[in-house]
Design a protein around this nucleic acid. Sequence first.
RNA 1: CGGGGUGUAGCGCAGUCCGGUUAGCGUACACGUCUGGGGGGCGUGUGGUCGGAGGUUCGAAUCCUCUCACCCCGACCA
Length: 489
Amino acid sequence: MAKEITPRQQDYAQWYQDLVLRAGLADYSAVRGCMVIKPYGFAIWERMRDALDAMFKATGHQNAYFPLFIPKSFFSKEAAHVDGFAKECAVVTHYRLRTGSDGQIEVDPQAKLEEELIVRPTSETIIWNSYRDWIQSYRDLPLLINQWANVVRWEMRTRLFLRTTEFLWQEGHTAHATADEALVETRQMLDIYAHFAEKWMAMPVIKGIKTEQERFAGAVETFCIEALMQDGKALQAGTSHFLGQNFAKAFDVQFANAQGEREYVWATSWGVSTRLMGALIMAHSDDEGLVLPPVLAPVQVVIVPIYKGSDSIPVLTEACQQIAEECKALGLRVELDTEDHARPGWKFAHHELRGVPIRIALGLRDLQNGEVELARRDLRTKTQTTRDGLGLHCKNLLDEIQEEMYNKALAFRTAQTHRVDTKEEFVQKLEQGGLVLAHWDGTGATETAIKEATKATIRCIPLDAPDEEGTCVWTGKPSARRVVFAKAY
RNA sequence: CGGGGUGUAGCGCAGUCCGGUUAGCGUACACGUCUGGGGGGCGUGUGGUCGGAGGUUCGAAUCCUCUCACCCCGACCA
């Protein structure tokens, strides 16, 4: 087990990388840009997945699975969509290997595919090709489907969890009879993402609309949730798209309405990915390691006995087991660390690295006094706590930690959010990092100019942005409301 | 795709400039022992195609040529 993590202040990117590797969340693999998600990291992802999945089901969605491979011709059917993804697609051209004359394995040139297959970067096309057959009448609508899958986008530059060539995600694809209904769906899923981010991940997000430049390829409107990381950079944590009738027209998906007239259906798609893992890490963790919100932590309470001589082992182990049982009975996820080969100090550091919210240490002295030492990961505080009612105390404390982690993150964001009205201040605040609320004249040209000059982009036009007359911070032209600028991941 | 960096034990590194016994150090691992309230001490031990190929040489981790891989930074993106 490696010891040191690079401090955040010294090198934030290195800190992130150290943390992911040393906390055992993920590892590099033999394939460039592709990561191995290790058991502990996957346990966190599973908890995210299960929570989201339950919310999707509760709102009437069903899971299904569509192929990994997409015929190349499908891509060309929606022009904007092709443009958006063409540059990062992996393509399957052959289906067989053979042993060459030099004894080496090589691609069999005889086994060339008639039509090449694209490894899905997203599944709109293959799914809408099926929807054409599934939808005939308004009675078939709405069609509410989600899939959990892997996708591949051949990125130039990758970072563990934040951007990898292959990643895991869910993608919802729905079809509706009216534009209004599809828009309601788009907004509903955005709300679910925001709710998940705030209540499960303890990470405040801004709900907003993307500008035309930042919009999903093929969407009419892209909604998003944006979060602020500790280094002052923004991170898009989830997107929900209103696709209009773009894919219905591209794949000729029509339905008969109640009057017997044929209409194109209206579509949405929405997704979050393993990128959320990166967001979770960068929202809360510190120089000692991960800090996990209790509802997502695979282990919520870890119990460490402090042995003193071999005689103490059975008695302390038993006392710890009782605490573990008490916690389990209350539905807490608890781990009893009775490994004899590691010393307490090592265990403390180890569980802190992994972000376990509560640590209970119990030695002979505590046993005599009817106490335990209880440590909070988020604040790194230790308090002597009475043994009586310890399970319930932990349960309540976990709720408190969840709440306080959110409040802390919110306070950080508030402190790092600046309203600016002059160009000088705008540039200066963007340089410092954080979110900048400023007026924008609404043109792509200005957006591009700002990006080139400052490297910051418009993260979103917040849904709750009040109407406020002003002038564009860059051009001085009139503006109706403020938008969120930031440097982003 | 440009710029930079790194490949030597599971991990982190030294040695390379200036070629020379059996390639070291830390950590991890195994065993023993003393231990145990913040990443333990002592002892013993296991573990290496020095990224790969070719060349120079009496002799290559070290020099030369080619090559592969990965990481970081930038442009593109979730």
